[in-house]
């Protein structure tokens, strides 16, 4: 196992390099120009735009720029944002706490809802509980977050006036007041995101549990007179977890990557909104840094998932 892990980690380096090269080339080729906004301003002569391009090295060959980026990255220099004229790592670090708080909580909420609901629904398929759970799940993923977010705002901010809908990272309050305000402003985004995620999780969990609940060994366990709770937890859930682990591993990188639409609706200063504004402003260094960190997390969580498979089902062997 240790050997396997080591080998996977070694392979991860060139594979990340490959991904980073592809990302870099793609971003360099993608249309758009960070100094586009200057183009519509008649007071800014075109020479200035050209000078800026030269200054930020945008007219050099792509490969040269990639090597330059890679070397800087190895020295811990993440690049310099065209739009903000600030170091990229400062920008990202500023946004991590909020992202972890909102998106992380939403993921936990999603799992906390989906696991029990999915298992319970699968234990008695087509029962009333199952039907209700399914209906909610269908509503959950057939309505996009831009829609549910707005609906919540209309109900809870506009009509009832209970919750604020502009998220503020720098609350003025202190002590308990601060805690209360932070929770209050995060309720809607976490709900929107969490329930959207929970909807599909529930369906996957239900399906995974259904796959194993009628297998012979479960019936055997039950026939042995084992406590139903024990049967479900020890025999069913553990074996049903493989697809769930896969999904969670797929979703974990987004805890860092943020949720673009939801962050936009509630004005949450997370990584997602940083990424989208960087993309719209063609601020390549920021896009590159964020997507590269994201890629690292994707690779890492894929590895973790593989290791968990082995633990969940010892017959899965890795060589």
């Amino acid at each position: 196992m240790g050997n396997y892990l080591l080998r996977r980690l070694i392979v991860a380096v060139p594979s990340l390099l490959g991904i980073s090269l592809i990302l870099f080339v793609l971003l360099a080729l993608a249309p758009g120009d960070p100094f586009g906004e200057l183009a519509t301003n008649p007071n800014v002569p075109p020479e200035v735009r050209e000078a800026l391009r030269v200054k930020f090295g945008m007219n050099d060959p792509i490969l040269l720029r990639y090597v330059r980026w890679l070397i800087a990255m190895m020295h811990g220099d993440w690049g310099f944002s065209f739009a903000s004229r600030v170091n990229v790592d400062t920008l990202i670090l500023q946004r991590i706490p909020t992202t972890l708080y909102v998106v992380g909580t939403a993921q936990i909420l999603a799992l906390a809802v989906a696991l029990p609901v999915g298992v319970l629904a699968a234990r008695r398929p087509y029962s009333i509980f199952d039907q209700i759970a399914n209906t909610f799940a269908f509503i959950g993923f057939s309505l996009p977050t831009f829609f549910t977010g707005l609906l919540l705002i209309l109900i809870f901010s506009v009509n009832l006036g209970w919750l604020p809908f502009v998220y503020r990272a720098d609350l003025q309050a202190t002590g308990w007041q601060w805690w209360w305000e932070s929770i209050k402003q995060a309720i809607m985004p976490i709900t929107v995101l969490g329930l959207y995620q929970a909807a599909s999780y529930t369906r996957y969990v239900r399906s995974a549990v259904l796959d194993v609940i009628k297998l012979d060994y479960v019936t055997t366990a039950r026939a042995k007179g084992l406590d139903e709770r024990k049967v479900i937890v020890k025999h069913v859930v553990r074996n049903a977890l493989i697809p769930v682990v896969t999904l969670v591993a797929l979703q974990m990188p987004t805890v860092f990557g943020g949720a673009i639409v939801t962050e936009q609706i509630f004005r949450i200063p997370g990584i997602g909104s940083l990424l989208i504004s960087a993309i719209l402003a063609n601020d390549t260094p920021v896009i590159m840094a964020v997507t590269f960190v994201f890629a690292c997390l994707v690779v890492l969580f894929n590895l973790i998932a593989d290791i968990l498979y082995g633990w969940l089902d010892p017959r899965i062997s890795f060589r």
Partner: peptide
């Protein structure tokens, strides 16, 4: 898309 339409990208015909 506005970020392309209003850009000064020499290579982009849009």
């Amino acid at each position: 898309v506005a970020s392309v339409f209003f850009s000064s990208d020499v290579a982009n015909p849009d």
